[in-house]
Design a protein around this nucleic acid. Structure first.
Lengths: 203, 203
DNA sequence: TTTTAAATTAACCATATAGTTAAACCGAAA
DNA sequence: TTTCGGTTTAACTATATGGTTAATTTAAAA
C-alpha cells in the first residue's frame, strides 16, 4: 500500500498530542482524535484502554521533553556563567521547538498537582546535590548572594513566561504581529543571558 | 429568613468563579456551580443566559483584577528604581490575594487568543506612550541598555512564574512543603527587586 | 488454499450535561 | 384579600460523549 505507512499506535499518539495540547483533557474529544488519526474511534480504545490512559501517554511524553535537559545542563562541569548562557540558549530553543508544551504541562499539573509524584525521575538527593553545588558555584564565581532556588526560578521563568503569556503579550506589546513577537523571542536569548549575568555581578 | 442574605446574582458569580477557576471552562459543570451557590440549576440560566455568558462574567472580573494596577503603577511619576520596587511588591501582593487567577486567565487566553481583543482597555497609543516613557527613564537613570518590552516581560514573568509553576516547583525544590514554598515567595519580593535593579545597573 | 489471530469498523449503549418549560412561590401593590 | 411580576424549583429534553460489542477485513502462518 502507498502513502500512510506509519503504525497505528503512533498515528493515534500524534493525533492525541495535537488535540490534547490544543484543547486540554476536558476539551479534547476522542472522536476528534480518531478523525485526525484517520481511524475509527474504537481503535483508540483498542490501543489505549481509555481517554485517561491515552492522555497519560501524551502527557508523559510532553513532560519528558523538558525536564531531562535542564538537569543535564545544570550538572555539567562548566563554568557557571557559561552554564547559564548555555542553559538559556538551550531552554529557549527547546521551547521554540514545542511552543505549546509548557502551558500544556503546567496547566495539567495545576489541574492535578498530585500527578507530579509519578513523574519525577530525580530523587530528593539529586536535587539537593544540584542545588548545593550551584550554591557553591555562585560563591566561587564571586557573584552576588542569591539562593540557588531563586536563581533557578528566575532562569526558567524568564525563558518560559513569554510563551505562556504570548496571547496577552503579543497583542499588547507588538500590535498582535507574529513577526515582531518572533523577533522579540529571538533577541531574548542574548538579552536574558545578559540580564541574568549582570544581575549576578557585583559592582 | 436568617443567614444567607446575599443576592442570588452575586451568589452565583462567587460559586462560578470558584468552579471555573479551579476546573476551567470545559471542566466546569453548571450543576456543581448551582450546588455551591445553593440554588437550582435553572436559576443560573435565569440570571446568565448560558454557560458561556456566565464564564464571560467570571473571566472579565478576573482579568480586571490584574491589568489596571500594572498600568497605574507604571505610569505614575516616580523614579524608575522606586517604580520597579513598587511594581514588584504590589504585583506579588495582588497575586498572593488571588493565587490561581494568573493561570486561569492565561490558560483561557491560550485556549481562545481572539478573546483578548474585547478585553484591552488600552489603546495602542497608551501602550506606545508608556513604553517610550519607560525607555526614556531607563536612559536617564543611567541604566544598562534594554528595551522597555524586555524589561516589562522580565518584571512580570519573575512575579507570575512561581505561581503558575507552583505544582512543579514546590515538589522539586521544597519537598512539597507549603511553608517552605510560602517563605520562598515572601523573600521573593525583595529578591526579585534586588535582582532586577542589579541587572539594570552598569558595572 | 486454509486457518488463525490481530486489526479495524459500524452500530450501539449508558450516561452526563447544557439548556428548557411549566408550574409554584413570595412579597408588594392595589 | 386579590392580583401580579419577579424569583425559584422540579421535571424534562436533546444531544454529545466515552466506551462497548459483535462482525468484518487483513495479513501472515501452516
Amino acid at each position: 500500500m502507498s502513502g500512510n505507512e506509519k503504525n497505528t499506535e503512533q498515528l493515534i499518539l500524534d493525533a492525541a498530542r495535537k488535540v490534547f495540547v490544543e484543547k486540554d483533557f476536558d476539551g479534547a474529544r476522542m472522536q476528534e482524535i480518531a478523525d485526525i488519526a484517520g481511524i475509527n474511534k474504537a481503535l483508540l480504545h483498542y490501543y489505549y484502554r481509555s481517554k485517561d490512559q491515552l492522555f497519560e501517554a501524551v502527557f508523559r511524553e510532553s513532560f519528558n521533553t523538558f525536564s531531562p535537559r535542564i538537569f543535564e545542563i545544570m550538572s555539567s562541569p562548566i563554568e557557571l556563567s557559561q552554564k547559564i548562557k548555555l542553559f538559556i540558549d538551550s531552554y529557549i530553543d527547546i521551547i521554540l521547538e514545542n511552543p505549546h508544551i509548557p502551558a500544556f504541562v503546567l496547566h495539567e499539573l495545576n489541574r492535578n498537582p498530585a500527578r507530579i509524584k509519578d513523574l519525577l525521575p530525580f530523587t530528593e538527593k539529586t536535587i539537593g546535590g544540584l542545588l548545593s553545588a550551584l550554591s557553591q558555584e555562585i560563591k566561587s564565581a564571586g557573584f552576588v548572594e542569591i539562593s540557588p532556588e531563586q536563581l533557578m526560578i528566575n532562569m526558567i521563568g524568564l525563558c518560559i513566561f513569554p510563551f505562556i503569556g504570548r496571547p496577552i503579550i503579543q497583542p499588547i506589546l507588538f500590535g498582535n504581529d507574529d513577526d515582531r513577537f518572533d523577533e522579540f523571542i529571538q533577541s531574548r536569548k542574548t538579552e536574558v543571558t545578559k540580564f541574568i549575568l549582570n544581575a549576578l555581578t557585583k559592582k
